[in-house]
Amino acid sequence: MRSEVVQTMAHPPAGSLFPALMVSGMNWTMDRTPDPRQDIQAVTGLLDRVSSGDRDALADLYDRTSAKLFGICLRILSSESDAEDALQEVYVTVWRKADRFDSGKASPITWLSVLARNKAIDRLRRRRVTAASLDEASEVADDAPSAFDIVQQGIETQRLAGCLDELDAKPRAMIRAAFVEGATYSELATRESVPLGTMKSWIRRALLRLRGCLER
């Protein structure tokens, strides 16, 4: 009985319990590694070990990837404590769902980045929901089945950047604001002071052009 209670209280601590571990173990390999392919291999290997329940592997994975993923969460949520909560959700989810990663379909870093982006956006949306329906929202907004099935088809940063560049400046900015900052149709419409319908057709056209370009 007692242990049960302690468990329900065991949310992410904000106290710093392992400062030494974190400082010494931290590196931003994802961004600084001289050979990205080697890093992809290493992270793939770690995800594989995590999927078999290896806690040390999760710690290593965290050391390698948390700065990147925290950057994404922070970009979307703007608040450090919210971003920290989202980051924790990301790794707890990775712990449970690492087996859903398919190295044949996407790079592990892309997979993790999209996961972080989705978690942060879920949190962003939840933040906007009124307190009354908070519980409901947190249940609904969790992990769509597609959340773990990222398929990359060899689309690399430069290729997408090139295709985004082919769009007009405004739709390009809208697409970025939606994906990287979590803006919805109505928020984008408000931001640009255009009717909702106009925004929808801008985005839809931009998405079609984007796909056309990427499939060329």
Binding site: S16, W95, S113, Q152, F179
Partner: peptide, 24 residues
């Protein structure tokens, strides 16, 4: 998601607070 994901590559890494790991 795969098509759009590379947009996240541009986001700069930020070191999370030390407390994040202990929560996980």
């Amino acid at each position: 998601s795969g098509r759009l994901a590379p947009m996240l590559d541009d986001v700069a890494p930020v070191q999370p607070p030390d407390s994040a790991w202990s929560g996980i």
